[in-house]
Nucleic acid binder design. Structure first.
Lengths: 232, 232
DNA sequence: TTCGTTCTAAATCATTAGATTGATAAAATA
DNA sequence: TATTTTATCAATCTAATGATTTAGAACGAA
C-alpha cells in the first residue's frame, strides 16, 4: 500500500531539542516520509505549515511556551489538508479527549515504541484517525463518563414531533433569539399569526414562555447540527 | 492473564436463531467463558440480566422487535457491572457513535472474524472499552465532525467573563427557564433586584432580551457541565 | 478617608409577550 | 362529501418584560 503513494511530507514540533532530533532520525529512516521541517516553537511551526503545507504534523502538546493544543486548534482553523498527530508524555484521558475533540488525527505517547509512532503516522497519512488501543480505551471511558446521566432523547416522548413544519420554522427562529416582529418579518406573515404559532408551540411543548420553548428545543435534538445531544 | 481470572459469564442476544446458535458455539468453545443465557428477545434479555448478572452481554442492535440501542440503555440504567458489547451488521459511524455514547463497552461487526469477537470480549471482560481499529477510526471521524465548526470558547472575547458571580447565578437560573419571580424566590431577593441584575447581564452580553442572553450563555460555554462544549 | 464595585431595592414607564376568542380559506383525509 | 388539520389574521386584554433613574449598604483598595 505505502509503496504506491507519494512520500508524505512531515513536520516535527517538540520543544525538547534532543527529542526532536531523535524523532527526526526515526522518521527520516522510514523511506516514505520527507521531513520538511523540525522546530521547537509552535509559533514557528504554524508559519512553516502555511509555507510548506505538510501532510502530517507531529506536535508535542506538552510545551511550556505555547500550548500544543492551542497550536493544533490554530492549525485546524487554517483549513488545510494537514493532519496533526499529538505527541504527549501523558496518557491523561482528559488530554486525549481534548486533543481528539479539536481535531488531532492521532495521539501517541512519547514512551511508546517507535514502531508504534511510525504505525500511527502510516495510518493517519492513509486518511484514518488513529489512537493506539490503550489510549482509545481511555478515551472511551472518558467519553462515556461525559455522557453519563445525560437525558436521553427518546423519540416517543419527544414533543417536538408534534409540531407542524410551519411551527418548526417559527421555533427555529425563536431559537435564534428573534422576537415576534423579527419572525413576522422573516416569514412574511403578520405578527398576530406568529403569536398564534408560538402559542401553539407552547401548548405542544407544554411550556410557558419562549425561553422555555427554546431550551426544550435545544435539549431535545431540535436542529442539533451543532449540539451533541443526539436522539438515540 | 486470562488464566488467572474466574470465568466470565456471558449472555447472548440476537433475534436470528441461527446466528445466535453460531455465536453460542463460538463463545462456548473458549474455555474462559460461561454462556449463562442466549435469547432472541431484548426484553427477555433484560430480565435474564437482572437474574443472572452476567459480566458480558453480546447484544445484537439490529433487531426489529425492540431496538438494541434502547435495550443497552436500559441495561446501563440498571447500574450493574454488566458490560455490553454491541453486535451489528453495519459499520455506520452514527450507529457506532450512538452505541458508544449510551455506554456500550464494545462494538463488533457480525462480518468480522470470530477471533475478533473473542478478542473484543477479552478486552471488555478485562475492564477496557474496545473498538476494532477500523471502527474506531470511523467513530473518531464522526466525533470530530460533530465538534467541527463549533465555536471555540476563547476567553478573551467571551463576554461572560465580565459577569459578577451574582449575575452568573441569575443567568444560571435564566438558562433554566425561570422568570423574574422564580429567580427572586430562589435567590431570596426581591423581584426588582432580579430585574436590575438581568438588565446588567443584558448590557454586558450585548443582548436585548432573556432568550438571547440564554442563547449566548449556552453557546459560549456557560455552565457546561451537561453540554459537550468544552473549553480547550 | 475616599473611591469604586457589588448587591440590594424601588419607582416609573414603555414595550413586549402571552392568553383568549373568533374567523376565513386552503389542503389533506376520511 | 364531510371532517379535520393547517395556516392565516384581527381584536382585546392581562401579565411580564425591559429601560431608566435613583439610592442605600457593605466591602476592599488606593
Amino acid at each position: 500500500m505505502r509503496e504506491f503513494k507519494r512520500k508524505s511530507r512531515v513536520l516535527l514540533v517538540d520543544d525538547n531539542t534532543d527529542h526532536l532530533r531523535g524523532i527526526k532520525e526515526l522518521v527520516s529512516l522510514e523511506g516514505c516520509y520527507d521531513v520538511v521541517g523540525a522546530t521547537t516553537s509552535a509559533n514557528v511551526a504554524i508559519n512553516l505549515i502555511k509555507k510548506y503545507r505538510p501532510d502530517i504534523v507531529l506536535m508535542d502538546i506538552n510545551m511550556p511556551e505555547k500550548d500544543g493544543l492551542q497550536a493544533i486548534q490554530e492549525i485546524e482553523k487554517l483549513g488545510l489538508d494537514t493532519r496533526v498527530i499529538a505527541l504527549s508524555g501523558y496518557d491523561d484521558a482528559d488530554l486525549i479527549f481534548r486533543a481528539m475533540k479539536i481535531g488531532a488525527k492521532g495521539y501517541v505517547l512519547k514512551t511508546m515504541a517507535s514502531a508504534q509512532l511510525i504505525y500511527a503516522i502510516d495510518e493517519v497519512a492513509a486518511g484514518k484517525v488513529y489512537l493506539p488501543s490503550a489510549l482509545s480505551s481511555r478515551f472511551f471511558e472518558y467519553f462515556q463518563r461525559s455522557f453519563k446521566g445525560e437525558a436521553v432523547v427518546s423519540d416517543e416522548e419527544n414533543l417536538l414531533t408534534y409540531l407542524t413544519s410551519r411551527e418548526e420554522e417559527v421555533l427555529e427562529l425563536l431559537t435564534q433569539g428573534n422576537n415576534y416582529k423579527g419572525i413576522a418579518g422573516k416569514l412574511f406573515i403578520s405578527e398576530t399569526t406568529v403569536k398564534t404559532h408560538v402559542n401553539n408551540i407552547f401548548q405542544k411543548l407544554q411550556v410557558n414562555d419562549r425561553t422555555q420553548a427554546v431550551l426544550y428545543a435545544l435539549n431535545n435534538g431540535f436542529g442539533n447540527r451543532k449540539r451533541t445531544k443526539i436522539a438515540v
